[in-house]
Amino acid sequence: MALPPSETTPQQRRPTMKDVAAAAGVSLKTVSRVVNGEANVNDDRRSAVLESIAALGFRRNASARDLRQGRSGSVGLLLEDVADPFYSILSRAVEEVARGHGTMVFAGSSAEDTERERELALAFCERRVDGLIVVPAGTSHSYLLPEIQAGIPVVFVDRPPGDIDADIVLTDNAGGTRRGVEHLLSFGHRRIGFIGDAPGIYTAGERLRGYREALESAGIPFDDQLVTQAPPSPASTTDALDRLLGGPSPATALLCGNSRTTVSVLRELARRSTRLALVGFDDVELGDLLRPGLTVVAQDPGAMGAAAARLLFQRIAGDVGGPTQTVTIGTRLIARGSGELDAP
């Protein structure tokens, strides 16, 4: 039942700086100085303003402030999958750097869909984010040129962009797989298999390159029969292991090209009584609790995210005319047991 007009409760109005000034008995300029952290305010007046702010529940309109400064106070982060542990760590590192700049981060997942990547990137730009950090799904990014020319800086991370020159933060993918293969070679393995992601993915190609280079340096011919490149799935893993472990000269060791492939291989090997030295690219949660523990070439997604964010805020701060930069983050081998099995 509707209340009589006299009993109707009006929607509460958000207190303004004028309300704070009236409550504290000071000028609007004094409130503005206190809110913005300026030093030239009498201690008594500052205390009165702060007490009034607390009593009224006043909150500064950050959006209005940012718009006056020509900023939105936000950046866009476009990942492959926000649920992936690798990208979760990268995202958190971006947030920490952004927090230090008083900036919010809006994130979205492309799911390796080039059209979805384009839609999300342009949607962020339509909302006038101050900059973009993109893990590219596609191979063409000329659609971002009008946005860049309009003043929105873009940093690419994990993979380089196509068609445009921009700041990039990468992992030393080839160096990481070289290190993993050299580790297996040191235990006497000569038949080393490689299961990587789809060949069209930049990181998959770089990791395969490092695998080939390590074998060539050791004087071991590259053998196509020891290599599989396909999106990770139970079916593709089963087929790959059947091929690697069958025939007269089976593989005695295996390097997995990413964490999803490693997990899929571990599940399949658990159903087989197969002795196989194993090194995974990317660490896996609870990998140290396996028996033997999982030996990995570990990336540093936190360092990648932080480096990308620092580059972006450098551009946002006005460094728009300098040459583009490429930052490469190294990997490290973590030996836990699975890659330390001697060749039969």
Results as ranks from 00 to 15, higher is better:
82 V>Q: 03
63 S>A: 15
61 N>Y: 12
66 D>C: 11
54 A>T: 13
68 R>K: 12
81 D>W: 06
61 N>E: 13
97 V>L: 07
85 P>F: 11
140 S>A: 14
139 T>V: 14
89 I>V: 15
141 H>P: 09
109 S>C: 08
134 V>R: 01
62 A>R: 12
66 D>P: 02
133 I>N: 02
119 E>M: 14
72 S>I: 10
85 P>R: 02
136 P>M: 10
115 E>L: 14
88 S>Y: 09
86 F>C: 00
77 L>C: 08
80 E>L: 12
54 A>R: 15
126 E>W: 05
81 D>S: 11
120 L>V: 08
121 A>Q: 08
55 A>M: 08
63 S>H: 14
86 F>S: 01
125 C>T: 02
66 D>V: 01
87 Y>I: 03
127 R>S: 04
92 R>N: 08
91 S>T: 10
53 I>P: 05
74 S>G: 10
54 A>L: 12
113 D>I: 09
141 H>L: 11
84 D>T: 11
78 L>E: 01
102 G>M: 01
56 L>Q: 04
142 S>C: 11
108 G>A: 15
128 R>D: 04
95 E>C: 05
94 V>A: 06
110 S>D: 10
126 E>A: 11
97 V>D: 00
57 G>F: 09
136 P>Q: 03
103 T>N: 01
136 P>W: 03
133 I>S: 03
146 P>L: 04
94 V>M: 03
70 G>K: 06
135 V>F: 00
56 L>A: 07
120 L>C: 07
101 H>L: 04
149 Q>N: 12
135 V>L: 05
70 G>S: 04
124 F>K: 04
133 I>W: 00
106 F>D: 08
142 S>Y: 05
81 D>C: 12
94 V>F: 02
131 G>W: 02
68 R>D: 02
124 F>P: 07
136 P>N: 05
125 C>E: 00
60 R>Y: 12
62 A>C: 12
62 A>L: 15
115 E>A: 15
145 L>Q: 15
137 A>H: 06
140 S>I: 06
122 L>R: 06
73 G>H: 02
84 D>F: 02
73 G>E: 07
129 V>P: 01
137 A>S: 13
144 L>E: 08
130 D>P: 01
104 M>C: 09
102 G>D: 11
123 A>P: 03
96 E>R: 05
84 D>V: 01
147 E>D: 04
56 L>S: 10
136 P>C: 10
90 L>C: 10
140 S>W: 09
101 H>I: 05
114 T>N: 11
92 R>A: 13
78 L>R: 06
91 S>Q: 09
106 F>I: 12
101 H>C: 06
92 R>K: 13
89 I>P: 06
65 R>P: 03
140 S>L: 10
138 G>E: 00
116 R>F: 13
131 G>T: 00
142 S>T: 13
92 R>T: 04
131 G>I: 00
103 T>P: 01
88 S>G: 15
120 L>Y: 08
146 P>C: 07
119 E>D: 14
132 L>N: 04
81 D>T: 09
76 G>L: 01
124 F>G: 03
64 A>Q: 07
123 A>C: 11
67 L>K: 06
98 A>T: 03
115 E>D: 14
107 A>V: 14
92 R>M: 11
78 L>C: 06
106 F>S: 09
75 V>Q: 00
66 D>F: 11
135 V>D: 01
81 D>Y: 07
73 G>P: 07
143 Y>A: 00
